[in-house]
Amino acid sequence: TFVALYDYESRTETDLSFKKGERLQIVNNTEGDWWLAHSLTTGQTGYIPSNYVAP
């Protein structure tokens, strides 16, 4: 799992909003700078900017 370093507000319907400190499970990280992730807090799935999270 990864932890959010910053808050992120989604800009498209495929993005995932999250708050700093939220735990995220990475589903697919082969898309370059945008990873498909599942929030362990909200249960939602969407794309996140990879530079906003850390292991």
Score class of each variant (00 low, 15 high):
1 T>C: 11
1 T>N: 09
1 T>G: 06
1 T>V: 15
2 F>S: 03
2 F>R: 03
2 F>Q: 04
2 F>N: 01
3 V>D: 05
3 V>H: 06
3 V>K: 04
4 A>T: 06
4 A>Q: 00
4 A>P: 01
4 A>L: 04
4 A>M: 06
4 A>W: 02
5 L>I: 10
5 L>D: 02
5 L>M: 09
5 L>S: 03
6 Y>W: 13
7 D>I: 02
7 D>A: 06
8 Y>R: 06
8 Y>W: 10
8 Y>L: 03
8 Y>I: 01
8 Y>H: 06
9 E>L: 10
9 E>R: 08
9 E>I: 13
10 S>M: 06
10 S>K: 12
10 S>Q: 08
10 S>T: 06
11 R>A: 13
11 R>W: 08
11 R>L: 12
11 R>I: 12
11 R>V: 14
11 R>E: 13
12 T>C: 14
12 T>S: 14
12 T>H: 14
12 T>R: 14
12 T>M: 11
13 E>W: 07
13 E>D: 14
13 E>S: 13
13 E>Y: 08
14 T>F: 15
14 T>Y: 15
14 T>Q: 13
15 D>P: 02
15 D>H: 15
15 D>K: 08
15 D>G: 15
16 L>D: 01
16 L>V: 06
16 L>Y: 05
16 L>E: 00
16 L>R: 02
17 S>M: 04
17 S>N: 07
18 F>G: 00
19 K>R: 11
19 K>F: 09
19 K>A: 08
20 K>D: 03
21 G>V: 00
22 E>S: 02
23 R>Y: 15
24 L>M: 08
24 L>W: 03
24 L>F: 15
24 L>R: 00
24 L>T: 00
24 L>V: 05
24 L>P: 01
24 L>K: 00
24 L>D: 01
25 Q>W: 15
25 Q>G: 05
25 Q>M: 12
26 I>M: 05
26 I>N: 04
27 V>T: 08
27 V>L: 15
27 V>I: 15
27 V>A: 07
27 V>N: 06
27 V>R: 07
27 V>K: 08
28 N>W: 11
28 N>D: 15
28 N>H: 11
29 N>K: 14
29 N>R: 13
29 N>Y: 14
29 N>V: 14
30 T>N: 11
31 E>F: 13
31 E>Q: 14
31 E>K: 14
31 E>L: 14
32 G>L: 11
32 G>I: 11
32 G>N: 13
32 G>C: 09
33 D>W: 11
33 D>S: 12
33 D>L: 12
33 D>N: 13
34 W>V: 10
34 W>G: 04
35 W>M: 06
35 W>E: 01
36 L>E: 05
37 A>S: 03
38 H>A: 08
38 H>M: 15
38 H>C: 10
38 H>P: 00
38 H>N: 07
38 H>R: 15
38 H>F: 15
38 H>Y: 15
39 S>F: 02
39 S>L: 05
39 S>N: 14
40 L>Q: 07
40 L>I: 10
40 L>V: 07
40 L>N: 06
41 T>Y: 10
41 T>C: 09
41 T>W: 12
42 T>P: 01
42 T>E: 01
45 T>M: 12
45 T>P: 01
45 T>C: 09
45 T>S: 11
46 G>V: 01
46 G>C: 01
47 Y>M: 12
47 Y>V: 05
47 Y>D: 02
47 Y>C: 07
48 I>P: 01
48 I>E: 00
49 P>W: 07
49 P>D: 06
49 P>T: 02
49 P>K: 07
50 S>G: 08
50 S>H: 08
51 N>V: 08
51 N>A: 14
51 N>P: 05
51 N>G: 12
51 N>Q: 13
52 Y>V: 06
52 Y>S: 13
52 Y>K: 06
52 Y>R: 07
53 V>N: 03
53 V>G: 03
54 A>H: 08
54 A>C: 10
54 A>Y: 10
54 A>G: 10
55 P>K: 08
